[in-house]
Design a protein around this nucleic acid. Structure first.
Ligand code: FES
Ligand code: FES
Lengths: 148, 148
DNA sequence: ATATAAAAAGACCTAAATATCTTTTAATAT
DNA sequence: ATATTAAAAGATATTTAGGTCTTTTTATAT
């Protein structure tokens, strides 16, 4: 559904939101290790988010990633848009060229309920909402039973 | 979500169910043309379904594909299982190693609604249900505005 | 029996996603 | 100014999904 790039990005940004701040930036190495993600690959993805100002970074000693006030309020759908694009939310679940009410595939009515439902969730929830859940101990971004 | 192989299979089998019968088999070429699908690729996929007896075929003159009584009653989930596997319906939407209620990701509660909902649809609907919709003119498997 | 038609099977190719490795740039502390 | 640190950037490799082409097998009609 979402590409690996995309879910890596989401978890990474939540991790940064949870563990970092403007004066405690998080290095890519730490993120990769804590989330069991391939560091260099993740690095590329985060670069993209920085370029779009979804995420902030600085180089050099004590450099790393962090998110500012505004970034925390960004909706998940924006990140998905940047990384995967929004085509999933428009295209036919059975792979027809067009998804439309007037020329529906046999799964259309059922499928769009979920497609729209997901769209709504991603369009409503912001980074901070996920961070909050993690802070409250109601959710996690790190894998269970990773070797440490 | 579903791979192309999988949606190609679903549309093809519905097309065959709709347009064919044991004494009017449908050639792979026709299916490919009518559904705008790559013929040889589709051929591989249908072979797999035939091997699993989800679809019937015969070679030679007047040969082709058709579905028998039993096949029409097969649930979509079975086809998905054969082609893509069922991992989608168990794995975490944010790509964590495990999806569980006790160690949920921040999207878990919202995501599983979607995942389970889709699972239910695929587990409930049979090939014939889709064929029926097409026969009633309430759904289509062919693309709109294809050149013919 | 033979020719023919159509699926099955096999070998191969291409493009995209994912991942790794190396070099460059920029920020900070000394 | 210099050394050091860490992200950015670039180049390359690997894997997987998707797609094409060729040969073989099998059913049917003549
Ligand atoms: S036409 Fe297939 S999901 Fe809308
Ligand atoms: S843990 Fe992520 S969807 Fe269940």
């Amino acid at each position: 559904m979402l590409s690996k790039s995309c879910v890596y990005a989401l978890r990474a940004i939540v991790y940064v939101g949870h563990n970092g701040s403007e004066n405690h930036k998080i290095g890519i190495k730490e993120i990769g290790e804590e989330l069991d993600l391939p560091v260099h690959f993740l690095s590329k993805i985060l670069q993209l988010l920085v370029k779009h100002n979804i995420l902030q970074s600085t180089k050099g000693p004590h450099g790393g990633f962090y998110i500012n006030e505004a970034s925390g309020k960004i909706k998940l759908i924006r990140i998905i848009e940047i990384i995967d694009g929004l085509s999933f939310f428009h295209k036919c679940g059975l792979g027809m060229h067009e998804c439309s009410d007037s020329h529906p595939c046999p799964l259309h009515d059922d499928f769009i309920v979920f497609r729209e439902g997901l769209n709504k969730i991603f369009s409503t929830k912001a980074i901070n909402d996920l961070v909050k859940k993690v802070e409250d101990g109601n959710a996690f971004v790190r894998n269970l039973n990773t070797k440490n």
